[in-house]
Every structure is written in C-alpha cells, then in structure tokens.
C-alpha cells in the first residue's frame, strides 16, 4: 500500500482526462449534428433593409441651425432610443447633442472666425469611424464595426470596463452609472432600454435601417442632415462631398470619422 496515494492520483488523473475527452467528443458530435437535424431555421437580411458599403452623414451646419432644427434631431433620437435624462450632469447619457465650434473642433478655432460659426451650434454624435479606436480597445468585442461601417454596441456583452470611453477621441460614449429606467420619461416599447453598468452611444439607427427607414435625426432635419453610402459614387452624400468643402473632427488622429460638416 506504499504507493496507494500515487496510484490513486494516477487513476484519478486518467479518469479526469478520459472524462474531458468524452465531453469534448459530445460537443463535437452535437455541433456536427446541428447542421443536419437542427430545428432552427435560417436567418437573413430583410428585403426592405437599407444596405450600403459605407454609411456616412453630411451635416449642413448652417441649414441645421435655421429654426433650431438641431433641437428636433436631438429630441427625436433620445426619445425613440429611450435615452435617460439623468438628473446629475456627471451621469449624463447622450447620443447626439450640440456644442460650439471651438469644442467640436478644438485647436482649429481662431479669433477671426466669422461670428455665424462662432455661435452656431454644431451637432455631435458618434463618428462611426473607419478605424475606430473604441473597437480596438474593447476586450470582449461588445463594440464592433459592421461591414457597412456602422460601429455598434452589443449591450448583452458589455462588461462596463469603459476602455472604449477612454479610447474614443470624440467623447461620444456614455456610461450607465445607474439603472436608466427611472429616468426615462416616456418609454418607447419599440426599442430596449439599457441596464446599469453598460456603455452606450449612437447606433446610426441600425434598427430603422433594417426596416428601410432613414435615421430618425435625418428624417426630422428637413434636409440639413444627409445620410447615405460613400461606397456608392452616385449617392447623394458622395455627390455633395464632391462639390462642397467639408471638415471632419480631429482628422489627424487617423480614426477616419464618417460625419462630414459642410462649412
């Protein structure tokens, strides 16, 4: 019996090994089986969905400021997406908002800028970057870039590490410091709310594009926001950018923002 402990360890090790290989075998067998006998049907993109190679938005700054059209854009976005109105500014959640030129384009302001641009409100939202640093930073792929260029959040997967917030050079992301539900005045049942502890931001109205609709802010902007496919040379956005000069936020960072501001 001198070796009993050793032989026990050997046997238990071997049995653990065979057990684990068994379970691996099971998984393999079942995954192989899924292709043959799965009762789950097929998923496809809806025929009415709007599709593009590279979604982008053009902001006609002057037109947007007329009659305070930007206010409607902000309001409709936050309303349909159940964005909470947090009482403490520190915990603010916002997808789209307005700010002055010197804050939206820091480093580009100078004292000789025409007054109309100094005072005019600029709409800011997620830039849906071509090379998004938030996606690079996310440790779980909870934020990811779709093949049509939209940078999205998977709220089910987000662990709330807020690395993406540190990575975003545009301050486009908000964190749910509390459960947002009590701070939503009127819940839109067509769109989920978020839970505490996850990051959120503008989704370019992915849920509306899937139904063949334009983003909500574009729809209420009376033509001041133009949304379209920059991968298509004939699209309205491509045509406008060919004719008129547009600037982007912090283009020197290489993130490739896809919101273009006409000035």
């Amino acid at each position: 019996m001198k070796n009993s402990r050793r032989s026990f360890l050997k046997i238990s090790g071997l049995s653990a090994l065979s057990l684990s290989s068994l379970s691996i075998g099971n998984v393999l067998a079942s995954s192989a089986g899924v292709t043959n006998t799965s009762p789950i049907g097929d998923a496809s993109v809806k025929p009415e969905a709007l599709q593009a190679k590279k979604w982008a938005m053009v902001v006609d700054v002057k037109k947007l400021a007329e009659n305070k059209r930007y206010e409607a854009c902000i309001e409709i976005c936050h309303k349909i997406h159940n964005v909470p109105n947090m009482p403490n500014k520190r915990h603010e959640v916002k997808w789209i908002w307005e700010d002055e030129f010197k804050h939206v384009f820091p480093g580009q302001e100078h004292e000789h800028i025409p007054d109309e641009f100094k005072e005019i409100p600029f709409l800011v939202l997620c830039n849906h970057c071509e090379n998004p640093s938030c996606v690079q930073a996310c440790p779980t792929k909870a934020t990811f870039k779709r093949d049509d260029g939209i940078v999205l959040m998977d709220f089910h997967r987000c662990i709330g590490c807020r690395f993406c917030m540190a990575a975003c050079p545009y301050g486009s992301r908000s964190f749910n410091f509390f459960d947002p539900r009590p701070f939503i005045e009127e819940v839109n049942p067509e769109f989920p709310t978020r839970m505490k502890g996850v990051v959120e931001k503008c989704n370019f109205c992915a849920e509306r594009l899937a139904k063949g609709q334009q983003p909500a802010c574009v729809e209420v902007s009376e033509g001041a926001l133009i949304f379209g496919d920059l991968g298509d040379h004939e699209s309205e956005v491509s045509q406008i950018l060919k004719k008129r000069f547009a600037i982007r936020r912090k283009p020197n960072l290489g993130s490739g923002p896809q919101i273009y501001y006409l000035v």
């Binding site: 690079q136 930073a137 996310c138 440790p139 779980t140 792929k141 909870a142 997967r157 987000c158 662990i159 709330g160 590490c161 807020r162 690395f163 964190f175 749910n176 839970m195 505490k196 502890g197 996850v198 990051v199």
Partner: peptide, 19 residues
C-alpha cells in the same frame, strides 16, 4: 471597476488580442 462584473468571463469567452 467593472459595470457588469458578473460578465467578467466574457473576456475569456470572446478573447480579443487587439485589446
């Protein structure tokens, strides 16, 4: 520091070497 600490194993479940 995590907002959703119960999901911490997502880091292993969806390993992301670029992060």
């Amino acid at each position: 520091d995590l907002g959703q600490p119960q999901r911490i194993l997502n880091v292993l479940l969806h390993p992301t070497p670029n992060s």
